[in-house]
Each structure stands twice: as C-alpha cells, then as structure tokens.
Write a protein that binds this DNA or RNA. Structure first.
Lengths: 249, 249
DNA sequence: TAATCACATTGATCTCGGTCAATAAAACGG
DNA sequence: CCGTTTTATTGACCGAGATCAATGTGATTA
C-alpha cells in the first residue's frame, strides 16, 4: 500500500496512514478495492467531481445516526468505523466494522433514511457520495450502477455468513472466524495478514459476535496459551493460521 | 387479494392460490409489492418481455443451489421458499423465508454465482429475471436500477435486524419477533394478520432463529398456555398481538 | 506524575437453552 | 387404508457461556 510507512504494522493504526484527503480516485491507493473499479477514465472523472472528501472524524465521533437526515453514502478512506442498530429496549447490535474502500450507509437506500448509526473507531476519514448526485450520475453510467449493486450484494453476503456465525457457531469458532476475517481484510489492503491492530474494544467484538466481553477475553487468553495467537493489548499476532482456520467450523 | 378464495385462510396454503402463471405484471395482484413499482407503462411492458414465468416448483424442490450456474434472479409469484447457506462441516443456516413479491438470489450478484440454496416450502412459482437481460434493460431505465438497489437495501435491513435477533434476543423474544414478522408479511399480502399457515417445518424455524427444535416447540406451547396464540399444527392464530409485541424486545 | 476513568482479565457461580430420550402425531407411499 | 417415515411435542438432565464480582492495566487529564 502506497501510504504504508515503515513502522511495524503491529503498532501502527491504519488511521495514522497519511491518506491525503485530496487525492483523486485516479491516484487513490484504494482504487482496486473501491467503487470506481471498472469505470472508464471519463466516467471516473465525473464520479470524482461529486465526491466530497470530508475532513477526519475523531475516535467515537458519529459519521451519522438514525436521527440524521439521509443525504449521502460513504466510503471509508482511512481508519475504521462500526455500525450499530438498536432494539426498543436500549440493547444494541454492532452490525459491522468497516475499513478503507468499504461502503457505509447502504441500508439507508430502501427508506432513504439512515437505519443504523456509524461511529469512528479511531481518527478516520471518508469519501462522501451525495446520493442525489450519485443517482443522477448513475442514469448515464450503467457501469456505476452495476458497481453499486455489486457492493450491496457483497454486503449481503457478509451478513448471511454472520447469520451463520451468530446462529450456529461456538465461542471458539466465532472468534477464530473473526480473526481470519480481519486477517483477510488487512492483507487485502496491503497490510500483514498475521499482525494487526484491533481498533475496536473487546466490548464491540463481543457485541458483534453475540458473546459477553468476558468470553472474548477468556477465549483470546486460551488461544494464546495454546500458541495460536499472541495478544499485545489491541495488537494481535496470528501464530498458527492453519490451526485457526481449522477452528472456524 | 384478487386470487384469494373464500376458504378460511388458516387452512389455506398460499401455494394453492390460483395465481395464473401467464398474468403480466400490469394485471398482477402483487404489483404494488413487486419490482415494477414506479415504472411507466412502456418500461413495464419492456420488463414484462424479459420475464420468464416458470412452471411451479414442488415442495422440497430446489429453485437453485450453489452448484448451479448463475443466470437469473427470481421473484416469488406464489407459495414460499427458504434459502440456506452451509458451513464447511455440514451445518447450515436458514438465511431467509421468501413470500410472493420478494426477491431471491440477490446475494449472487457480487460474484455472479449463487452463494446460497433456495428450496420451495410448498408448491410455488416464480418470475424468472435473466440477469443479462435485466442488466441490459437497466441501462436505459434508471427507475428499474433504483428499484433494484432499493430491493437489495431492503434485504440488507432485514438481515441487520436478524443479526440483532440472533445476537441479542432470548428464545421468547425470537419467537415473538418471528410471529409478528410473519403477521406483517401476510397482512401486506392481503391475508389475515392473525391467522396463517407456517409453511416451513419447526426445524426450519429453529434453524433460522438460532434455536433447537425442542425450544421452538416448548415456547410455542407455553405461548399457547398463556393465551397468546393457538396452535393447530402448522396453523397459527395470534390471540393477543399487543402482548406478543411487548415480548419482542 | 499522580489521579481518574474506561477497558480488560480472571475467577466463581448460575441459568437458559441445548442435548438425549421417549412418545405422539402427521405426512407419505404402496 | 394401513404401515412406515418424518416431524412435533414433552420430560429429564447437562453444559457452554452469561452474569456477578474483584482485580489489573492502560489511557487521559491536570
């Protein structure tokens, strides 16, 4: 990854990547993971024009909540976010974690109102895609529409496999699956597949996987005793990926 | 609903609706729930041309599996379907139940290959939308694209709330939520909101909600003792919707 | 640098819902 | 219509993971 400097990845938050806010899609290192994939140069230039590159959001800051009026979709540019939905009684569910190149807000399209809350897990930035402009642009750009559909469909896939995880997997399997999914996403972004930072709290992980915080701690500790991983606070080193794969179910 | 005859709904499968296979979108009773919503007459006529109205699928028959080559999206025309995904070890998860007007196969778009299996729960029929034609048609019909996005987004919403259910809800809350969701979907289709048939087995329900069959049986029985519902095999009568709502969490 | 606070770990105990087992009741095929 | 198979119900028991509680550790502010 172009922006990756030479500090060891383990102690390096993705947020600290100096991903220049003004870099256009054409020169963006996320290009091959991102929406513009497959667009011609002219189309890409047009898309580029409607994108608003916002300044960064601090840790804990909301990108949007269900209270905000729906206006835009977002693509993570640097850092990471979590999304949550709330039950009537205050309980809430962490529905996803989002990394550079990934879309946030797609579940708002149906009712054109945000149905979830998105919060930065670290200092992060996004590309903002005003939905009106995007829709307008899409009318003359079938390839863009197809990309959008493809993105939605990808999120659908992720959700289905999370259903399987939540409905059928044990605590060990859930955490093994979680670790591998992160390993994959980090390595897709040019980072180490075996050493990375978890930017979210144990509580967020637990919530997302349908577990108690204590269970996450215990399983992580046991994985460490068994030589599968090494834990350094929020840093994780995967020591035996093959064995972890075997635990995923 | 136009096709609904005068047999009491409780003992009447939706499959038995005589939903004529050849009826065009314009005259279809599902119009307002279905894809064509918002299309102009000319556009609708064009869409109508690419739709293949297949003959019916018997109970247990696959609409598609992950082994089949991806070709089409489907909209349920009559009856009902379930979709499943499989873990490596043979366990599988029922990811959804689908009723008339609802899309099946949207999670195939990303990789243009079916990522789940769809099976008829009763004698059912579908409208088949060959994806190539749909995509071609979409190029000149922005409204169709928007409808498609909207459909995907709606499914996303459903998946997120199922995550909440699977991750955070108790067995009672899960089943109360399940019953209300069906009540809503049946009444949206012109059926009784309080009396309906569950076309799927207890096993399917249990699997979908992340429970054991025995738990589903027990909770249903207890709900009946408490006067919330009446069970007549696969038939369900909701006796106290307000109280059931209160149990959803 | 200490004080505060949020987050993480570890242990002890409890409970919801799973598993095992035994009928019962539908659905199905001949 | 009957015998067989599948699906559903009910009971007894058990265990994975939740909850409760105490302690440790790392961040943030002054």
């Amino acid at each position: 990854m172009a922006q990756m400097n030479n500090v060891t990845p383990l102690f390096k938050d993705m947020a600290k990547l100096e991903h220049d806010h003004r870099v256009a899609c054409q020169e963006c290192s996320l290009y091959r993971l991102c929406l513009p994939l497959g667009l011609h140069n002219e189309d890409l230039a047009q898309l580029d024009k409607i994108i608003q590159r916002s300044q960064s959001h601090k840790r804990g800051e909301a990108l949007f909540t269900t209270e905000h009026a729906f206006k835009s979709l977002y693509v993570v540019r640097s850092g990471s976010f979590k999304t949550t939905i709330s039950a009537t009684n205050g309980r809430d569910q962490v529905t996803g974690f989002y990394f550079p190149g990934e879309f946030i807000g797609l579940d708002a399209l149906y009712q054109e109102s945000y149905q979830s809350n998105a919060k930065a897990l670290e200092t992060s930035s996004v590309c903002e895609l005003p939905f009106d402009s995007l829709q307008e642009l899409g009318k003359g750009m079938p390839q863009l529409q197809i990309q959008l559909l493809s993105r939605l469909s990808k999120e659908l896939l992720g959700d289905k496999s999370l259903m399987l995880l939540l409905g059928k997997k044990t605590a060990d399997e859930k955490l093994a699956t979680f670790l591998l999914s992160f390993s994959k996403r980090f390595s897709d972004r040019g980072f180490s597949a075996t050493e990375f930072h978890l930017t979210m709290s144990r509580g967020d992980i637990a919530n997302h996987l349908g577990l108690a915080v204590e269970t996450v701690s215990r399983v992580f500790s046991r994985f460490q005793e068994e030589g599968l991983i090494t834990i350094l606070g929020k840093g994780i080193v995967l020591r035996d990926i093959a064995k972890i794969k075997g635990l995923c179910g």
